[in-house]
C-alpha cells in the first residue's frame, strides 16, 4: 500500500463528486434553470427595443452567471461537512490540496460549464450577433472556473458558521466583481467593434492565479473548519 498521489486524489474526488451529482439531477438542474429564468425575466421587465436589449445583454448574462454560481456554492462542501466525509478526506493519506482541487473541478463541470454552454442560446433573446455570442461563451469559459475557485475559498471559510449562506454571499460577491468587469467588458468590446483580447487575457491570467492559489487556501480553510 502506498499513499495516493495528488493526481490520484484529484481523480478520486472528481469521479466521486460527478457520480453523486449525476444521481441527484434535480439539484443539478436547479442552477441552470435559475440562470435561464433570470436571464429571460430581464427582457420582460425592460423595454423590448433592440438597442436597449443589446446594451443590457452582456451585463445581464454575466451577472446571472455570478448569481447561479453563488447559488451552487453552498452545495460544494456543506453536505460533505455534515455527513463526516470531509473529516475522512482531511485525514486520508492523500494530499488534501488534490482532493479539494478535484471537488472544485467537479463543481465547475456541473455548474459553470452548463451555464457557459447555455449563455449563447440565451444571448439570442437579446439580439446579440454571432461574434458577440462567441466572445460571451469564451469569456464565460474563462471566467466561470474563477467563480468556482474563489467561491470554494468562501464556501470553506463559512463552513459551520451560523447563517453561512448569507455570509458567503457577502464574502464572495465583492471578489467576483473583477471577473464580472472583465467578462462583461470583453463582450461589450466586441459589440463596440474593438478587440476582446485584453479583457480575455486578464481573465486568463486571473484564472491561472486562482488555480495556483485557491486550492491551498481551501485546504487550509477546511482544516480550520474541522478543528
Amino acid at each position: 500500500m502506498e499513499s495516493p498521489s495528488a493526481v490520484d486524489a484529484i481523480g478520486w474526488a472528481l469521479r466521486r463528486d460527478l457520480r453523486v451529482a449525476m444521481r441527484s439531477k434535480g439539484e443539478l438542474s436547479v442552477e441552470l434553470l435559475f440562470y435561464v429564468i433570470v436571464v429571460t425575466l430581464f427582457p420582460l421587465a425592460t423595454s423590448p427595443s433592440r438597442d436597449t436589449l443589446a446594451t443590457l445583454g452582456p451585463g445581464v448574462l454575466w451577472t446571472a452567471a455570478l448569481l447561479a454560481a453563488l447559488l451552487s456554492l453552498s452545495r460544494l462542501f456543506a453536505s460533505d461537512f455534515r455527513d463526516g466525509t470531509l473529516e475522512q478526506i482531511a485525514l486520508s493519506p492523500a494530499p488534501l490540496v488534490g482532493l479539494v482541487s478535484g471537488k472544485i473541478a467537479a463543481h465547475w463541470l456541473t455548474t459553470g460549464l452548463p451555464v457557459a454552454a447555455m449563455a449563447p442560446l440565451l444571448g439570442i433573446q437579446y439580439g446579440l450577433d454571432a461574434p458577440v455570442l462567441a466572445t460571451l461563451a469564451l469569456s464565460l469559459l474563462l471566467g466561470t472556473p474563477i467563480l468556482s475557485l474563489v467561491g470554494a475559498v468562501g464556501a470553506a471559510l463559512t463552513l459551520g458558521a451560523r447563517g453561512g449562506g448569507s455570509l458567503l454571499a457577502l464574502l464572495v460577491l465583492p471578489l467576483y466583481a473583477p471577473v464580472l468587469i472583465f467578462g462583461a467588458g470583453a463582450v461589450d468590446a466586441v459589440r463596440a467593434g474593438l478587440s476582446a483580447a485584453p479583457h480575455l487575457s486578464l481573465l486568463a491570467a486571473g484564472l491561472l492565479l486562482a488555480i495556483l492559489a485557491a486550492p491551498f487556501a481551501v485546504s487550509a480553510a477546511v482544516r480550520i473548519a474541522l478543528d
Binding site: 500500500m1 478520486w12 457520480r19 455527513d83 463526516g84 475522512q88 486520508s92 493519506p93
Partner: peptide, 25 residues
C-alpha cells in the same frame, strides 16, 4: 467518526470502494 461519512446517493458497495481507494488500497 460520529458521522457515517456515507454518501446517500451512492450504493453500499460504491461507498466502501471509495473509502478504500482514498486510503490508497
Amino acid at each position: 467518526g460520529h458521522s457515517s461519512a456515507l454518501k446517500d446517493e451512492l450504493s453500499a458497495e460504491e461507498n466502501l470502494d471509495a473509502w478504500l481507494r482514498l486510503d490508497g488500497e
